[in-house]
């Protein structure tokens, strides 16, 4: 089933796919950042694709490479029972389009990716940090982030919000 889908994808989005890897039955697509949203929309809603579940969305930091970051989408089709991995590379100054309107699960996952890597998702409904305090300095899963953080030597201060 998966192989037929790949053929359809190649026919429709051939110019956008940079590489296709298959290992132990798992298929990984590396695609271009431009037009990513259209590709994902097709994967989500086209009847021949029907990847209706977003298992995970995460970031990777390849420090020293260009482009520096990678965003990984793990998709699953509940109808056909197969999986697909989509990867896309982008730089620090680039924004990536949100997919939270395609899969609601993406909303928090994108917030986490932003929190940990500083990758910004355009048109996200609520682009805030999710795990760390709002006034946190830096993005801890970046490879150049020191384990103690940037403010380790400074005394820690707590600001309580004024009660209204």
């Amino acid at each position: 089933m998966n192989r037929e889908k790949i053929e359809v994808l190649k026919r429709k989005f051939g110019s956008q796919i940079l590489s296709l890897k298959e290992e132990k039955g798992e298929i990984t697509l590396l695609v271009k950042l431009e037009g990513l949203k259209n590709l994902l929309k097709a994967l989500r809603y086209d009847d021949e694709m029907a990847y209706d579940m977003l298992i995970d969305l995460c970031g990777v930091d390849y420090l020293g490479e260009d482009p520096r970051f990678e965003v990984v989408y793990l998709l699953r089709s509940l109808r056909d029972g197969d999986r697909l991995r989509i990867k896309v590379r982008l730089n620090e100054d680039q924004e990536i389009e949100t997919v939270s309107d395609l899969w609601r699960a993406a909303e928090w996952l994108e917030r986490e990716t932003y929190d940990m890597f500083g990758i910004r998702f355009a048109n996200h409904p609520d682009m805030r940090r999710i795990l760390l305090p709002d006034d946190f300095n830096g993005h801890p899963l970046r490879k150049d982030f020191p384990a103690e953080g940037y403010d380790f030597d400074k005394p820690f201060e707590v600001k309580l919000e004024e009660e209204s």
Binding site: L132, G138, P146, A147, G149, Y150, F152, F156
Partner: peptide, 8 residues
């Protein structure tokens, strides 16, 4: 936890 997220 000599870490960025733990109060020392």
């Amino acid at each position: 936890f000599r870490s960025y997220n733990v109060v020392q």
